[in-house]
Amino acid sequence: MTEFQQIERKQITFGGKPVPVAVVHPLDRASKAPSVLKGLVRGMRLTLGYFLRPWKVVTRQYPENRQTLRFPQRYRAMLTMIHDSQGFHRCTACKLCEKACPNGSIRVITQKGLLEGVNKLDQYIWRMDSCLLCNACVQACPFGALKMTHSFENAVYDRRLLVYNLNRYAGPPAKVLAAEPDTAKRRQMMEPRGRFDGPLPLNEGLKPVLAKTQESPVRETSA
């Protein structure tokens, strides 16, 4: 109860059941002249109190505090594929994330591995421009190959720059690569992929100027 209202607690029957209710009776205070002034003065006193105590202000100066910005661990912003210290990812190209995505922002392109003889990841294409950041892909991945990172300043002038290739190499997952002792053979299995490789959504012919990536050789792809 405050001085502006009276709360009357009682039991009433509604729909054949007793329901505990709190009946609000707002008090008629504004009709009296001293009360009008008192209400205004109290509001002003509160704001003046904050004015005189600037340490209670919670404003954060965003572009200035960039270096000290800390996000919670679970903060969802940029989808990334986890690459371990040796540069291997865990994606087996099972396409569960593609199926879980609510609006088709993920496209997993696989290729038939010549050395391994199984389907392996060629390109993992993620369209940030249509992504909802709903975390469904991360939840669906049975191998923990994906995670959401905290990079949130993603504004670009060209929408095509929001289409990313998440894997740094085309090839089998870390489990297969780690089992291969020969370094030269392992390197042969890993074909490099750039950040902006892959089909572009708006104009296939024009690659963004920013992406000066190595032209990858022609390969057989299956979408």
Binding site: T2, D28, R29, A30, V36, L40, G43
Partner: peptide, 18 residues
Amino acid sequence: NEYDALLSGNAILQERLR
């Protein structure tokens, strides 16, 4: 309670709502 002090007690608001 601070909200009450800031807005609910304000006569202008009360007259516009009551």
